[in-house]
């Protein structure tokens, strides 16, 4: 199977600081791939390269068998924290990407509306972000991302700012959401459990300069949290990765 996205021997240095070192990875259509690594491993830099904010100092990025353009419509990006605009009502935050792409506001709202119940946002269209709980804001940010209909989602620690309970709920919700949609996604996280629950494949990154230490396929049936046997196997993988990380990365 031809990969949708392929990153080959990509390195990135800012002046004297080598941030990424010889990164190679692939994402196939419909796959959920996680980049797992310690803080400061250059995970977010990888996204910046994909989004064209910077050019890699070495290596190549290929999307659909062609070199990735600097101005690309390949990705829908969900930044760390929710990055909702506090001055826009929820509905206007959700339609932001569509409006930027030139869709009229009315059409954009009609496209977003049917998705509201699945994201638990029905009845909150007229609210401002500050009026919503952290979990709801995060769901809104995800909806704003997926509604853009881009080939691939880039999720940068989407649940990093949430409390443990809300995060666990959000992960379970995201799992069921993924069962209904065949989105292609790349997730950045330092949460091992999150990575194991959500991914088809995990790339473990080293501390800076980040390089791929290990590639781990997670061949578990979904949903992974509901069935006790699957949950146990997930726990075993999680323990294995944690152990590996502790051995191979120094703080």
């Amino acid at each position: 199977m031809k990969p949708l996205l392929s990153i080959d021997s990509v390195g990135m240095r800012f002046d004297a600081l080598q941030v990424l070192n010889d990164i190679s990875l692939r994402v196939a259509e419909g796959e959920f791939v996680t980049i797992l690594g310690p803080s400061g491993a250059g995970k977010s830099t990888l996204f910046q390269l994909l989004l064209g904010e910077h050019r890699p100092t070495s290596g190549a990025i290929t999307f659909r068998c062609a070199p990735l353009e600097r101005k690309t419509n390949a990705f829908a990006y969900m930044p760390q924290r929710d990055a909702l605009m506090p001055w826009r009502r929820i509905i206007d935050n959700l339609t932001l990407g569509l409006e930027v792409q030139g869709m009229p506001r009315k059409a954009a709202r009609e496209k977003v509306r049917p998705l509201l119940p699945e994201f638990g946002l029905e009845g909150f269209e007229r609210h401002y972000p500050s009026q919503l709980s952290g979990g709801m804001r995060q769901r809104a940010a995800l909806l704003r991302t997926v509604v853009q209909d881009r080939p691939m989602l880039l999720l940068d620690e989407p649940f990093g700012a949430l409390d443990a309970l809300t995060r666990t709920r959000m992960q379970a919700w995201l799992e069921t959401l993924w069962a209904h949609h065949s989105w292609t996604a790349m997730l950045i996280t330092h949460d091992v459990r999150e990575a194991v629950h959500l991914s088809d494949r995990i790339y473990v990154l080293s501390a800076r300069p980040g390089r791929v230490l290990r590639e781990i396929p997670v061949a578990l049936p979904r949903p992974r949290t509901a069935d006790p046997a699957t949950a146990r196997r997930a726990q075993a993988i999680e323990a294995d990765i944690l152990d590996f990380l502790l051995k191979h990365t120094t703080p």
Binding site: Q48, L51, Y77, P79, A83, L96, G97, V100, Q101, L154
Partner: peptide, 19 residues
């Protein structure tokens, strides 16, 4: 992050300024 988000959506500088 708002600006990165908007640029990733395809916004130009004027759009980033206004939005």
């Amino acid at each position: 992050e708002l600006e990165t988000l908007l640029r990733a959506m395809g916004a130009n500088a004027a759009r980033v300024f206004l939005t």
